[in-house]
Design a protein around this nucleic acid. Structure first.
Lengths: 337, 337
DNA sequence: CAATTTGTTGATAACGTTTTCATTGAGATT
DNA sequence: AATCTCAATGAAAACGTTATCAACAAATTG
């Protein structure tokens, strides 16, 4: 029951280590007879190839790291699950790079590609975790795909969602229901996603000829709590909004809580729309109207794009934009006069 | 800018590779002068030690895998975040073993310890993912800690919560409010946690002299949806329950949704208690009374116990039971006559 | 029948570390 | 002065694979 190496297997089956290796990685180039012998020996001594030996030789780790601000967030968790799923299908392992927004941790995880511990990075952040000079070209970077929070660097593989358009669609929905005083509760304003959604909000307003009122936008941080406190602030306004555009479902969840506490009925007294369409959305009371994000597709595309880079395959489209669509439920209604 | 190895550093600083290695892992045994030289050279050529070279030599990967049924679940996500945090502190990486309850994936991830890819396993499952014979002794197993869903094997390190006692406390709370017809919505009944909670439920009932009514327990699966459908079933009973004990917050969330649809007010018409105290609990309407699980502590203890095994330190207490306490909020109230 | 191709296999050399062991020289002890 | 100790270093041998290259037999071709 001692840990068996490739040499033991070789000896046991009467072939060379090379042949054992071939039997495992290129079965078709070894004769049926020897293959059988080797397989039997492997089974007999319970041999499992040592990853480090192989990796050291091939310079491939078979792992990737996903650098993500907070695994606890349902949106992030959904994507990472999809990534894990796709990675597993192609024999890759996923290292969890939960950073809690700590730049030190981000860099730590990013450095793993230098030490060879991972073959590539999926990055959910707008900050490139490397030091680069202006002369640095894209192909000097390690395999990397950037998702959801675009970083400002041409040529990097990205899988995104059009946050401006999505926000616009969300707000247009409210406008079409007769709302004019539409509050907005943002996520962290240091993220591109939140900025883009704010831009979309403004564009929708402008297009409908509604004047932008800075008092109606309150900054949150994508967390439930912030949705609640922001809503309380908005309700304290002398002229309160008749609808709320929340930049995440979590925020909407907090908002609903605050609205209930204030004795307001959704959607009769006030409409609310969320963003993400997490699994909670459909079960809120009332069921939340929200922008549906294609988590599964995001993960899938991230992994595909990363794999192409790792395997140095040509990539036709380095920038993938996934559709995001409005999921209308019961939390929005025609404005009551 | 080519990737530098230890040999380049050695040449650049005029020492041997051995000294470079020592400078990095045992700085104190190399003279200050050479240390400085080496450090300067390292900095100059941007050297990062190759993980595989080191791991091959030391037979240590510096990684662990956490095998968990579903990262999307807020409870699981909370624990894994804590594990990642603790692991990072001691220089370990966390491989994400999200299995979606697929035994094949469980075994795949478990096998990583055999291939050397990870040094240990944190397992959230009641099934041991190895083939063992009756003669197998504990110290033949790889470093392993089992959490939340106890596996039936003496001597394995475990960090647990007393689900029987916790459930009992939850139900006693309802009983103390005058409830007698208390519905239960279970999680997956193939898990020990759910069975234990059901046991606790029955014990509390028995202790209060309330007869157990099988009609009042409905099987869910820890997901929101199941909470909703289970509640609908319970409400269809000729004599419906006056309180609901939900085996997870997600279930409670689904239950609240169903109750609202049925026009019932919580807690006036029916009380609800959950289990987990996820971040959503406090913001439900009404705020959910629930059993608080110490996610952070669970993760912390898991990692500590695993590390002790990896480093072959003596372990005084192999079985850790963490306290779980009732968090009373607004979803439970005195039974109205 | 000789020449060439094809299909299998083995020997061997890396891959990049760490660690053991031996060596050196300087300072301390007799 | 001769020996001993000790700290600092280097040489070299692993760790367990895989890939290259050469070798050999068998099969095909001219």
């Amino acid at each position: 029951m001692l840990k068996a190496g490739i040499k033991q297997v070789a000896k046991l089956s009467g072939v060379s280590p090379a042949t054992v290796s071939r039997t495992l990685s290129n079965p078709e180039i070894v004769s049926a007879a020897t293959r059988e012998k080797v397989l039997k020996a492997i089974d007999e001594c319970g041999y499992t190839p040592n990853r480090f030996g192989a990796s050291l030789r091939t310079q491939k780790s078979g792992s990737i790291v996903v650098i993500i601000p907070d695994i606890t967030n349902a949106f992030n968790a959904g994507i990472i699950r999809s990534i894990e799923d796709e990675a597993a299908k192609v024999g890759y392992s996923v290292l969890l790079g939960d950073t809690q927004r700590d730049p030190v941790k981000v860099r730590h995880y990013a450095s793993m590609v230098r030490s060879g511990q991972v073959d590539g990075i999926i990055l959910f952040s707008q900050h490139l975790p490397f030091d680069i000079t202006p002369e640095t070209t894209i192909d000097q970077l390690p395999p990397l795909v950037n998702s959801c929070e675009p970083l400002d660097l041409d040529g990097v593989c990205q899988v995104m969602v059009n946050n401006v358009a999505a926000a616009k669609e969300a707000v247009n929905h409210l406008i079409s229901l007769g709302h004019k005083r539409i509050g907005a509760i943002t996520g962290n304003m240091d993220t591109p996603s939140s900025n883009d959604r704010l831009t979309g909000y403004k564009q929708a307003l402008a297009q409908a000829g509604i004047e932008f009122d800075a008092n109606l936008v309150t900054n949150g941080n994508y967390l439930i709590e912030s949705g609640k406190t922001a809503t309380e602030q908005l309700l304290a306004l002398s002229e309160r909004p008749t609808a709320l555009f929340c930049f995440s479902d979590n925020i909407a969840f907090g908002a609903m809580s605050a609205l209930h506490d204030a004795g307001l009925k959704v959607p009769d007294d006030i409409s609310v729309v969320g963003f993400d369409d997490t699994e909670y959305a459909a079960f809120m009371t009332p069921a939340l109207t929200t922008m549906h994000q294609p988590l599964k597709e995001i993960g899938k595309n991230c992994m595909a794009l990363l794999l192409a880079q790792i395997e140095k395959r040509p990539i036709s489209q380095r920038c993938i934009e996934l559709p995001i669509k409005l999921q209308v439920r019961r939390s929005t209604a025609q404005l009551q006069q």
